[in-house]
């Protein structure tokens, strides 16, 4: 039985097991994540608390909450439009009825996309190549450092490739991180061809029998076609050495980004076949909705979240758990 069947059951009366589940789930989450989640449910519950009747004002307020939590414009519209329909059909008027329709719809949207939620797994006794891509200033280099630190602590041999040959000081930045986490950094010249750095790095990683190679790339806006083609080239070049690489392409997204995050994900997915998302700077924001939006509109799972400045602040992320927590907190109030 899936998690969402359980949630649905909560509506249909079989809610006995719910409290136990919740304690377990709640404990799993970091403080940072909890904040993003609770602020969303707080707002939703405030909306229901002030509920009088279903009218245009109510819908507007609901839209504002969803968009304010960066659920995404399209998903928001999908939810509110569906709600308008449902309210008409089922003649839902009471607070409970309306709330149920909303959560049902959100669960439905969540389940629409069956996606591969596999966490990032390293290959056994073989090199795993992970390519990091994203627009400027989202935190690619820092995320690489944090992940390298994690793998190092797990006793893996980690290599880093300084593929951002464009931005001033980028190579230097990765080098410093390399020293801090004790991982070798393969570099090229500033202004040089990033593909050749990637090639050298893959070759070296194979020779040295490294477990993981993390490749940094320069930030690029997704509408610059020549820069996007450069990414394709990097990928091709890596494949010359390791045909099934890169094993993961992680798109780094800044959690404070608005609707453009979805466009970014779409464009990067097209050129580099993104396998997962690293959502950074989530600690500063009060949003949980973006996870739903990315999943719904693009079918790409969020695999890591950045929750702070320290080395240990990149966490593996399970969106099913997270969204379950989000919804069950809403249900808790209803029941």
């Amino acid at each position: 039985m899936g998690l969402f069947d359980k949630i649905k059951q909560a509506f249909t009366g079989e809610k006995k097991e719910e409290p136990i589940q919740q304690d377990e789930v709640a404990e799993k989450y970091e403080k940072g994540l909890e904040k993003t989640r609770s602020s969303f449910s707080e707002k939703m519950n405030a909306l229901f608390a002030n509920f009088r009747k279903v009218d245009e004002d109510f819908f507007e307020e609901l839209e504002e909450i969803l968009i304010g939590a960066d659920v995404g414009f399209d998903v928001t519209m999908e939810i509110t439009d569906a709600l308008r329909q449902e309210v008409k059909l089922k003649n839902a008027k009471s607070q409970n009825e309306v709330q149920q329709v909303i959560i049902e719809k959100m669960v439905e949207i969540y389940e629409e996309n069956e996606i591969d939620e596999q966490p990032v797994q390293l290959k056994k006794n073989e090199l795993t190549v992970i390519l990091f891509v994203g627009v400027n200033g989202v935190g690619k280099t820092t995320s690489i450092a944090k992940l390298a630190h994690q793998y190092k602590s797990d006793g893996k041999k980690v290599l880093l490739a300084a593929g951002d040959t464009f931005r001033a000081g980028a190579i230097e930045q990765l080098k410093i991180w390399g020293e801090r986490v004790h991982a070798e950094v393969i570099t090229g010249k500033e202004g040089g061809d990033p593909a050749s750095v990637a090639f050298d790095a893959v070759k070296k990683a194979k020779e040295e029998q490294a477990d993981v190679l993390l490749i940094d790339t320069a930030g690029r806006l997704q509408n610059k076609i020549n820069l996007m083609k450069e990414l394709e080239k990097i990928k091709r070049v890596i494949q010359k050495e390791v045909p099934d690489a890169p094993h993961e392409v992680l798109l780094v997204l800044d959690a404070t980004t608005g609707q453009n995050a979805l466009i970014q994900a779409r464009q990067f997915k097209e050129t580099t076949d993104v396998t997962g998302i690293v959502l950074t700077k989530l600690d500063g924001t009060a949003k949980g909705g973006i996870v739903l939006a990315i999943r719904n509109e693009l079918g790409i799972p969020v695999k890591f979240v950045g929750l702070g400045e320290s080395m240990d602040d990149l966490k593996a992320f399970d969106s099913t758990d997270y969204i379950y927590g989000l919804f069950s907190e809403l249900i808790k109030e209803t029941i």
């Binding site: 939590a69 627009v135 400027n136 997704q222 509408n223 404070t256 608005g258 500063g284 949003k287």
Partner: peptide, 30 residues
């Protein structure tokens, strides 16, 4: 490209520092 959060960011920085102006970056994106 900042989303809804832009308002909070700007508000806090302005309250604490009384900024004099804003520079908007990465407008060459879509």
């Amino acid at each position: 490209m900042t989303g809804q959060e832009a308002a909070n960011v700007a508000k806090s920085f302005n309250e604490q520092l009384d900024i004099t102006g804003v520079v908007l970056t990465k407008l060459d994106g879509d």
